[in-house]
Design a protein around this nucleic acid. Structure first.
Lengths: 132, 132
DNA sequence: ATTGGTGCAAATGCTTTGCATAAAG
DNA sequence: CTTTATGCAAAGCATTTGCACCAAT
């Protein structure tokens, strides 16, 4: 992954904000500094950087994905009406009840625990590929 | 919300499976019983029923949304490769560490806690509407 | 020099919508 | 009867991709 001007500025702008912007919001911010950048470049870079674990892709309710420059372990509160997202500090061994008390003024309807991983079938497939 | 044949069969088919199907997967299943149903009807009904809290909309990594006929409080493991989703029993006061040990054979990379609610701005807006 | 990245425009693909018709209450 | 739902086709919209050109290593 080469260090291009576009990539650096996209990352800078993403790290600068706590608003969990969408690709096009970030595009607008980056465009102030790189007027000739294209939206496709923003998408491509966000995809690559999230695959590389440099940034986080957040997929909640809305149609658009959101991005987060903060990759430290933390969780989010999502507004079901406007789609806004705020941070919540969490860790493996914290108590869910306590978290619910501290939700940045959000009125909470429900919570969901999401685990990301590989299902048994896909683990097997991976093994096959490695063994070849 | 009227009780139509389409709506009933969509709900039946969704409740019949634990596979967390996408709209088009459900469309295929429903089509076996109602050959003239349209995909738009499936989308419209899934949207309405999830708004009404009768079913759950699941929005993880893939491009397609998935649906769950089980609205009891539980969480999911999501396969980052094939998009398959499995259930995990969770409740407000359970220990995250314990859950991680029981993830249906999935190899877990990370977990995320998602809270759904209304942000302070949207709570205020709602109040305004009510007061009018 | 080579490989990966960019900009542009066009294509994709899931989802939503407009509209005339049909069914529910 | 009135209103809501349906089917179909068309539109929407976020995201992705093909391609020629450019820049990083």
């Amino acid at each position: 992954m080469r260090i291009t001007n576009q990539r650096e500025i996209i990352l800078e702008e993403l790290r600068k904000t706590k608003s969990h912007p969408t690709a096009d919001e970030l595009f607008e911010a980056v465009r102030q500094r790189l007027p000739r950048i294209s939206l496709a470049t923003v998408y491509r870079n966000l995809e690559q950087m999230s695959d590389a674990g440099i940034i986080n892709k957040i997929e909640y309710g809305g149609r658009q994905k959101r991005f987060d420059g903060d990759v430290s372990p933390h969780s989010h509160v999502y507004c079901v009406k406007c789609g806004k997202i705020a941070d919540i500090e969490t860790s493996h061994d914290c108590d869910l009840k306590k978290i619910i008390l501290d939700t940045k003024g959000y009125k909470i309807f429900g919570e969901r625990l999401q685990f990301m991983g590989l299902c048994p079938d896909c683990q097997m497939e991976k093994r096959k590929i490695i063994e070849k």
